[in-house]
Simulated assay, not measured.
Amino acid sequence: MKSLIFACVSFAFLISVIFAGGTQNNVRCYECSGYYMQDCADPFDNRTMMLTAKCAQCSKGSVQVDGKMYIERRCLQLKSDDGCQRNATNWECLCSDVDGCNGRNTLVPGGTAFSMEASVSVVVLSAFLSIQQFVLQ
């Protein structure tokens, strides 16, 4: 019985690792610059934009040119943690939870961008810890 539980726990942990990490380029992102295209600004109207395939992560950020702030949306080939960062003049938010996530008007510093992969990992890890505690009793 304990070996069956251990096998289930091991499988759950493996699934958690698969969902939590990696640099799989399977999300599609919008790519545009508000400096060149007025349609790129917020509120964003994606009806005129195409999604770029094979991105590891999407980016939405601000770029300052001649004292004016513009929105820029990009497809990134390397993945890092989802979330937002701000410096003195610019900000950038990274996301990879759904196709077109950098098209959200709410994806800005101070807002919340949840990753489905992170949520699944937390649930699986919680289940793993509960089963492990049950087995050790």
Rank of each mutant, 00 (worst) to 15 (best):
F6Y: 13
C8I: 15
C8H: 08
V9Y: 02
S10A: 14
V17F: 12
I18T: 05
I18Y: 13
G22H: 02
Q24L: 15
N25M: 07
E31A: 12
C32N: 04
C32D: 04
S33E: 02
Y35K: 01
Y35C: 01
M37E: 12
D39F: 01
P43Y: 09
F44I: 05
N46F: 14
M50Y: 09
M50R: 09
L51A: 08
T52P: 01
C55K: 05
A56S: 12
A56K: 12
S59N: 09
S59F: 14
S62A: 01
V65E: 03
V65H: 05
K68Q: 15
M69C: 01
I71S: 01
E72G: 04
E72W: 09
R73Y: 07
R74Q: 12
C75E: 11
Q77Y: 14
Q77A: 11
K79G: 05
K79S: 10
S80G: 11
G83H: 13
G83S: 10
G83D: 11
Q85D: 11
A88G: 06
T89Q: 06
T89K: 05
C93S: 07
C93E: 11
C95K: 11
D97K: 08
D97P: 00
D99S: 03
C101Y: 07
C101S: 10
N105I: 06
P109R: 04
P109T: 07
A113V: 13
M116D: 09
A118C: 06
S119K: 04
S121Y: 06
V122M: 13
V123S: 00
V123K: 01
A127I: 15
L129M: 14
S130E: 08
S130A: 13
I131N: 04
F134K: 12
Q137M: 10
